[in-house]
């Protein structure tokens, strides 16, 4: 993992999160919209680019799912992806923890 992998962009953070289970592109967009109550709505280009980048970096991989009609491409987070996510979680926890100092001012 390189320096510039963190902090994750909001899009990357939420895409990784919605790939904790196998999910396809459309499912990722829907899940991110639900999680953020419509605040983050991923555009097709943003999502496609992120999926390509994350595959290249080995953070996610493809799991093909056979359905009656056709092969459907699904993605899932890898161990490397989970590691990146945890690093980001630790960074965010630090921010939130330090934010509590405000209450004691």
């Amino acid at each position: 993992m390189s320096e510039k992998d963190n902090p994750l962009t909001e899009a990357f953070f939420y895409i990784l999160l919605s790939l904790r289970h196998p999910n396809h592109g459309y499912g990722v967009i829907q899940e991110v919209e639900e999680l953020t109550k419509g605040r983050v709505s991923l555009g097709a280009g943003t999502l496609y680019g992120a999926l390509q980048t994350m595959q290249k970096r080995g953070w996610i991989c493809v799991v093909s799912q056979e359905t009656e009609s056709r092969k459907k491409k699904e993605y899932i987070i890898t161990e490397a992806g989970k590691e990146v996510f945890e690093t980001e979680r630790a960074r965010l926890a630090e921010l939130l923890g330090n934010a509590d100092l405000m209450d004691r001012a």
């Binding site: 962009t9 899009a11 709505s41 555009g43 280009g45």
Partner: peptide, 9 residues
Amino acid sequence: FELYTDTES
């Protein structure tokens, strides 16, 4: 219909 929804992308 927007393709790119954040500054980075």
